[in-house]
Design a protein around this nucleic acid. Structure first.
Lengths: 108, 108
DNA sequence: CACATATATAAGAATATGCTTATATATACA
DNA sequence: TGTATATATAAGCATATTCTTATATATGTG
């Protein structure tokens, strides 16, 4: 991987909101409307951050009905494994989603 | 380490020139005038990139006479070890410096 | 001390980034 | 087919980034 490509990847990591999105994806796959809840941001703002993460292949998407679930592609860049491990644990945030009835359960 | 601090760190990594500086520092400690030679950039441009790396503690400096040698602080962020290992090997570039008589030898 | 070399800093300009609001597209369902 | 929900995209604006040129500071040397 060349310097340009690497730089684009770290640039994607170089934002607090995107790091939180990735930390949330370490807990489980989530969709945009769930990020909107947790991050208290508008839907377009979230979508634009996710687009940047997709552009550098850090996250994958899979559509399930009207929702699109995003997942962290942990193995895309093996040298980032310890970066993922170093992210703060946000499982409490995901738990709050469930408690508040904002979690999307998809039974496809 | 919080998200804000992490983001600042990855932001520092999110630039092709700075990644090259770090890759060069994987080979050996270097000073600004050597980066200027290798990177074919102006001295202020190089200094400003180094300042960003210093701000997030990725590089350390030590003055030796009129030169300031910069070094990679490999252990500052343990989760970045494999990032350092993944950087392209630029020892050829440092070798060229020596061949062209642009290497700074400091005998302090 | 005067001058050369190495480095840092400041100011300005061009470009990039990250939000906002408005709108388009895709899917589900009655 | 019409409506609701989820998501993406576009345009515009405020701020940040990265260069350039000019200048300041620090060290070494005659």
């Amino acid at each position: 991987m060349g310097f340009e490509e690497m730089a684009e990847c770290y640039k994607a990591l170089g934002d607090k909101t995107r790091l939180k999105i990735l930390a949330l994806l370490m807990v489980e796959d989530l969709c945009v409307c769930e990020f909107v809840e947790v991050l208290k941001m508008t839907q377009p703002a979230v979508s634009q951050h996710i687009r940047k993460l997709k552009n550098v292949k850090l996250v994958k998407e899979r559509r399930q009905g009207q929702w699109i679930f995003y997942s962290l592609d942990r193995d895309r860049y093996p040298h980032l494994h310890s970066v993922w491990e170093s992210l703060p644990d946000l499982s409490d945030e995901v738990e709050k989603l469930k408690v508040n009835g904002k979690k999307v359960y998809c039974t496809d």
